[in-house]
Design a protein around this nucleic acid. Sequence first.
DNA 1: CTAGGGTTAG
Length: 489
Amino acid sequence: MPQKRAVKFLGLSKWVGAFHATPARLEKILPLPLNSFNVFSQNTEPKDTSKFYTDLIRQCIQSKSISDLRTIQTHMIKSGFSHLSLGNKLIDAFLKCGSIEEARNLFDELPQRHIVTWNSMISSYISQRRSEEAVKLYNRMVLERAFPDEFTFSSIFKAFSQLDLVYEGRRAHGQAVVFGLEVSNAFVGSSLVDMYAKFGKFRDARMVLDRVAEKDVVLVTALIVGFAQHGRNVEALEVFKEMIDEGIEANGYTFASILSSCANLKDLLMGMLIHGLVIRSGFEFAVAAQTSLLTMYSKCGLVDDSLKVFKQIIEPNQVTWTSLITGLSQNGREEIALSKFRRMLRSSISPNAFTFSSVLRACSSLAMLEQGKQIHAMVAKYGLSGDTFTGAALIDFYGKCGITEMARLAFDRLSKLDVVSLNTMIYSYAQNGYGNEALKLFNPSLGCLVSSEREGIDQDLKLSNDASQRNHHNFSSHSDSQKTLLRKR
DNA sequence: CTAGGGTTAG
């Protein structure tokens, strides 16, 4: 009986007394009759009415009361949107209450939208990883002559990098230039640098960065992160040093990224130096920096130091636990890795694809069949059977345990194939004496993988197949699994 | 009333 559900407006006691307001009751106690809203234009609307609604909306946000917002919306629509600014506030309120759909519905209904409203909608879509919607709105915005401002540009570029739309992102950059907002502030600049860096377009990223007059830590960190994420660790370190030289202080984000570069370079000395810097700059308890620190030590082979870092972490998150488990598993401490995994679950932190691929690796190294099976069940429960990394770990695990059928089952569940998972499957077959099955996979033209709807995969397979054909008469260039196959033949 | 950068896997 949703109609009868009481709607409580906490601060409304002077209007409604102590009783609860239903939409029908609310209509009776509004400060002005609904019809009379129409006589006010947007500019001359009475101050107190506007304030009345504004307060109401603020209370709804505080109590996260979406149903109350709906009530207000109903009245607004009835009054023919006489209060446009309220419409915008209402959209903002829906967004803050997490109801993006209702915000969008109202957004579409409004005869006019404020630039702030456009920006709010766009950034909400992006933070919900629904960037297609954000881009659609952005394009519509330009068409409807609601000109994007620096707030728009500070968020829209992320949509293009999320969607991997290089050309469109560049075009939006051009539009920012046209509006004179390209490097109007560090917000727009860092968003642009981030986009170009994510695309691997480091020349463009650098050019934008250099044009920003007031550089700050976020701007430079965007470039550092870009280099680090593309495995260009030396360049990441160079930019980091440059930043320090320019007197810009690093923060937790910067340290998280730069320590990850040290880890990948196995540069223990630099890592320890930066560890000192982390402590001195007061980011000792920034969890991402701590996580990277932990990884740095374990990649450099100092497991005990990484355990020490972990002990310091007050609230380890999913990534932290995973890093710890990975480090242990990679350093031959499989049992401890598994016990940490159990502890992670007990502290109600859920595992992800990264975690599973690491614990499965631990199970695989020691051929712990029962444990691995249990983890396989969890993988299925978490809906991660299709993940390429986790899948490859499963294939590897069952292969090592000699259960080829299960390995194949895991293989067939992959939502996407790549060279590694294919190699792992071939290796599992080969290891267990199924030479013919392995060959079928090795040469997809024999019919094993063709005729599936997997297009990207075929591309991948074609590449690896072409490469192997080039080496066909050259035995020494074959991988171990291929050698095994050739012997079996 | 609206804005930017992060750490983990084969």
